[in-house]
């Protein structure tokens, strides 16, 4: 791709960034105007300026809370990725393992995590609250990784697998050279879903853990709500949304970097 082609692409992409920003400015302006026009009390709906003020005033403590939630999210995301890929590999190596374990993976997926979070907190113990939070968030993020990786590992070209066997490939060689690269696009798609779910899982776990123990953004939301500091609540909420978007953006970038040369899903964006 030449320089001028690249410029053309970025010009064509400019609306993707510009249009949502213009909409955001319009909505925030309307919001700000409406609050002042109708004199809405700040404990019902604060103006964007008040939220920005709350964000600045509590910046240090909010950042600390963000760090705490982000740490749980990233640990859970890493754990679910490792566990999900390992389980998917076990599934593709043995039909017996898959038949035996798959129903339990589904049960884990369909059981509302809010319902099992209190149990996990009790079993792990409040003195190891971070571990409990990570476990809850891992359970939430695990399934899309497992589903994506399993589908991907099974999608390997049968003829290519036959060819590898013809040349005496071991199971490990087939896994490493053919199955895992085939699975990569599916896995990355699962990871994009799981990244968002890990954040949701971390927030849900913090809500369940409740007062005194959790220090993350979810707890700040509960606390601000109780104190009717709605502007701080909105600030925490905005930080959570921003974190979610950043996780998604980072994983999209990873996906594009790894697939852009060969996979249709990434090729489409370059043309």
């Amino acid at each position: 791709m030449t320089q001028s082609d690249q410029n053309k692409v970025s010009m064509r992409r400019a609306p993707d960034i510009l249009f949502p920003l213009v909409l955001a400015a319009l909505l925030l302006g309307a919001w700000e105007g409406a609050i002042h026009y109708w004199q809405v009390p700040h404990y019902v709906l604060p103006a964007p300026s008040a939220i920005a003020h709350a964000l600045c005033a509590n910046f240090g403590s909010l950042m600390e809370s963000l760090g705490s939630t982000l740490a749980v999210t990233l640990q859970a995301f890493a754990a679910s990725t490792i566990l999900g890929v390992a389980t998917a590999i076990a599934f593709t190596q043995s039909r017996l393992i898959e038949r035996t374990l798959y129903p339990y993976a589904v049960i884990l997926q369909v059981t509302p995590v809010v319902a099992i979070a209190p149990l996990i907190l009790i079993w792990v113990g409040f003195e190891r609250i971070n571990l409990a939070l990570v476990i809850v968030a891992t359970i939430v993020a695990f399934f899309p990784i497992l589903a994506g990786a399993t589908l991907g590992l099974k999608s390997a070209d049968f003829n290519l697998l036959d060819l590898a066997r013809l040349h005496g490939a071991s199971r490990l060689q087939i896994l490493w050279r053919i199955r895992l690269p085939t699975a990569l696009p599916y896995l990355l798609s699962g990871m994009k879903t799981a990244g968002g779910l890990a954040l949701i899982g971390a927030v849900v776990a913090e809500f369940v853990a409740g007062s005194g123990t959790a220090t993350g953004l979810a707890w700040r939301i509960v606390e601000s709500g109780n104190r009717l500091e709605i502007a701080t609540l909105f600030a925490a909420l905005a930080l959570l949304a921003f974190t979610g978007v950043m996780i998604f953006a980072a994983l999209s970038l990873l996906e594009w970097t790894l697939l852009r040369r060969w996979h249709e899903s990434a090729l489409g964006e370059a043309t």
Binding site: L160, L163, H167, G168, R177, P181, W262, H263
Partner: peptide, 27 residues
């Protein structure tokens, strides 16, 4: 034995050289 399928059956993520080298890599 060398085997050629009806479809080229190449690894889409690997270049022509790596695709042609596959049997040797496996050995």
């Amino acid at each position: 034995i060398g085997f050629v399928f009806q479809e080229p059956t190449l690894m889409p993520w690997a270049d022509a050289l790596a695709n042609a080298r596959l049997p040797l890599d496996l050995q």
